[in-house]
Design a protein around this nucleic acid. Structure first.
Lengths: 282, 282
DNA sequence: TTGATTTTTTCATATGTTGAAATCTCATTT
DNA sequence: AAATGAGATTTCAACATATGAAAAAATCAA
């Protein structure tokens, strides 16, 4: 289930001879197949491309690229549009790729990433999604420290007073955000909770600028929290990752420091679930 | 958009030498690449498989399969689970495959329409297109209800036993329909699946009269489905929209009731992609 | 019609893939 | 603890086959 961290650590366990994980990994790769997959991947990035264009841009012989495309076409992995003379990704690729999701639950994928995040930062790492206008904490890895932040998985927290919630709100399009503001009262939990819609809008603006959200004792006194969004394949923010800890360990300067591993973890998880972030919302 | 029929007709136009479309197509395919893609596809059908199992079942040398998998792993197209010693489809395959949908704005345009349809009807809303003689589900919005219909995007379903499929078949011109009937066997899935060509022709007739198609437990027992076609700018039926749910919520009377929002959603999407329906086929 | 452009095929050659067998590890049993 | 079995990697030599250059074929534009 957790191949995320194994991939780079030496944890990789298997029977048989261990792979030469130092530089020689390329030893067992099939060159022609790798080149073909490069073409396949390159094609997927374009909205459609002519043979000569692909070959030219990739510095490959047109003959070779042609044969690769014809082969893949035979399996429906790519398609040829005779009218425009363009090659495209085919339906079979979609069918095969979609099977990836059968096995992928966000929570499973997140676990090793959360663990690493906890180890790097020394603080409790959390995963949350949006449910019914609130943040639902679905997974966490607790720090070893005696004073620790704790959200029982399954607990709910209002969007406007949690780091993950604000990271998600910051990615909503304007109309959905306005709908949210109309529906949900911005209840105060501490003196620092943002209860004014305009103040929240401004805060979300800076969340987008920074790339991460901060909960600065806005829900629980003495607790700070740094969060970043996770995107799915449609570039929709579907979850958030955060670290949370006591103000005694997380001071004003620490938030910038902690934001890096948090953002990285969010990016890793985005990648692990086949997602992709786009430019921050317009 | 849909070069579906071009692929089999001789319409294929291109510059350069024409391909030998008779039997010699294999001439330009790269054998090793084709074998590798066979492994890739085979792997996607399993929930995960050990190297030896794959090699054994495919009649290939473990060494070769191993190298193929390692190569694909290098690009994230497959993943290795060290704990279970299993190979799986990887996130990159999902990302690349999903780009198949980008070629058409259909999916993007459909999303808000599907969401509204789901909210109006309370049932799962689906979008499907025809690919390779089957319905390919490309998008859906799930209901909140606990008992729900579920078609994972990327899954395929035979035309004759799905609402969307029949909505599309009903719009085919006679010759294409006959070709379809000659090619595809009408496999039975439940006692209600239409397996007789004449019965199917009659059903499609009434689909045209009504303006919507019904799947009355013809694929999955206990599940009903109401579907309507979506047209492109050439008035060709390129997709179908449906809602599907359990018979406990969708009774005989509900189908008429549900047909209105479904047809409206299909009309909306038709409009959103710049399409137009003409009078039902002559 | 001609010329320019792009795709597809041919062909000789070197490159790279292949499977068998050897090697190595882990997990289980003795 | 050591041995054994099962399965994963790697090595190696043979030879299949992928490769690019160039020719051929077809379409498009003028």
């Amino acid at each position: 289930m957790d191949f995320q961290e194994n991939a780079d650590s030496k944890t990789r366990r298997s029977r048989g001879r261990p792979r030469n994980w130092d530089a020689k990994t390329a030893q067992n790769t099939i060159k022609s197949l790798d080149r073909a997959m490069e073409v396949f991947e390159y094609l997927s990035e374009a909205q459609g491309k002519a043979l000569t264009a692909i070959a030219g841009e990739m510095g490959q012989s047109p003959a070779t690229v042609y044969r690769i495309l014809v082969t893949l076409e035979g399996r429906g992995l790519v398609e040829f549009d005779p009218a425009a003379q363009f090659w495209h990704i085919g339906p079979r690729a979609f069918v095969i790729g979609s099977r990836f999701l059968r096995r992928t639950s966000l929570v499973d994928r997140a676990r090793p990433i959360l663990r690493r995040l906890m180890e790097e930062t020394g603080e409790t790492a959390n995963l949350g999604i949006e449910r019914e206008g609130a943040v639902l904490f679905v997974s966490q890895v607790e720090t070893h420290a005696n004073i620790r932040a704790f959200f029982p998985p399954g607990s709910l927290s209002p969007m406007h007073s949690s780091g993950i919630g604000k990271a998600l709100l910051a990615q909503m399009d304007a109309s959905r955000l306005e709908r949210f503001l109309k529906t949900e009262p911005l209840k105060a939990f501490t003196g620092r909770t943002i209860t004014d819609p305009d103040a929240l809008r401004r805060d979300l603006e800076s969340v987008r600028d920074r790339g991460y959200a901060i909960d600065d004792e806005e829900k629980n006194p003495g607790m700070r929290c740094i969060a970043a969004p996770v995107f799915d394949v449609n570039s929709e923010a579907v979850a958030g990752i955060s670290v949370s800890g006591p103000t005694s360990r997380i001071g004003p300067h620490d938030m910038v420091r902690l934001s890096h591993p948090v953002r990285e973890a969010a990016r890793d998880l985005t990648r692990a679930i086949g997602g992709a972030a786009t430019a921050p919302r317009a």
